[in-house]
Design a protein around this nucleic acid. Structure first.
Lengths: 168, 168
DNA sequence: CAGTATACATAGCCTTGCTATATATCTCAA
DNA sequence: TTGAGATATATAGCAAGGCTATGTATACTG
């Protein structure tokens, strides 16, 4: 481990740079807690990876296993395993790629869409009491923040170059 | 699996209820993607559980292993494993509980604080380019949203009753 | 002081993640 | 047209992080 001296922003610092620093660290922390809570509050043995994968397929449509791995930010062999589980549950279907016998198109099935939708609804129902007291303005603030964050995170998923995985 | 008919809100519906539904599902989805990205962009073998645990200890101070498990939303044996790893790395210390020979107080060490801080800084640095183009107003919106979400999620971690884990 | 409750540890299992490597297919140039 | 290298997915084998069930030691209480 390199032990180069680093300057760490201190909460309370003025300056856009420090604000951004704590904004991002707080964002990651709260995201981790939300994710953990979501997983914990949903019964069933499916992990976050399963739902992330289904969500990608619903949002972007069928794609190859390798592409799917990139869009889900997992290594290809990991995606092979996840897809194997999804195929077994019949939540996705493999479609032979006519132009390349090595490849498959992976597409979400009607059953998969249903399960994903159910899972989301259960989650929303579980979280709803915690957020029921938000005012219209506050709800609007959260909505705007999500709409700001979403495309920027998506960017990192889609362009592997702008966001190197593991190692610098 | 019960297959009771459920009414699913449809995006585009008017009404606070539907807005809240999609706000929460979008929140969970983006939180999952941020968490995954954060894990992937940080080298090193520590998983999210390690960092979540350290963050809890830094935020709330030393506590018993059982309390720590609740605050981290994991089962007690899981926390035993995580703490074992942290003790081995010397990122936390076990302090004998004078009033109860069965129990320990778990406290974050100076080394632990350093590692947590370093990890957060690396993350912030990795994510920064994606968010560098936010205007002051936009940054302020995200900050306000985080400050709205944080206490509500914390609530669920602290009150196990208001938020039942696994099963309904 | 016996019996129950409580705090943590252990055992054993599953999923998700990785790297390294194998296998099958495709592509292209000699 | 065939052999070399590139590419798409699968397999093997490992570790971490989850869980439930259960064990063990200590605390409390009638």
């Amino acid at each position: 481990m390199l032990t180069e001296p680093i300057t760490l922003p201190v909460r309370g610092d003025a300056g856009v740079e420090a604000e951004m620093h704590f904004l991002l660290t707080d964002l990651v922390q709260i995201a981790g807690r939300v994710t953990r809570l979501a997983h914990r509050s949903s019964q069933g043995s499916e992990g976050p990876a399963t739902w992330r994968t289904l969500a990608v397929l619903q949002q972007f449509g069928p794609m190859r296993l390798g592409e799917l791995a990139q869009h889900s930010q997992v290594a290809q062999p990991t995606m092979t395993k996840i897809v194997a589980g999804l195929v077994e549950r019949e939540w996705v279907k493999r479609i032979a790629d006519a132009s390349d016998a090595r490849a498959w198109q992976i597409g979400i099935s009607a059953k998969g869409i249903l399960k994903l939708t159910e899972w989301r609804s259960n989650l929303a129902g579980a979280l709803q009491p915690l957020f029921a007291d938000l005012s219209d303005d506050e709800r609007e603030t959260v909505r705007r923040a999500i709409d700001l964050i979403q495309p920027r995170i998506d960017q990192a998923y889609i362009d592997p170059d702008t966001f190197p995985a593991k190692g610098e």
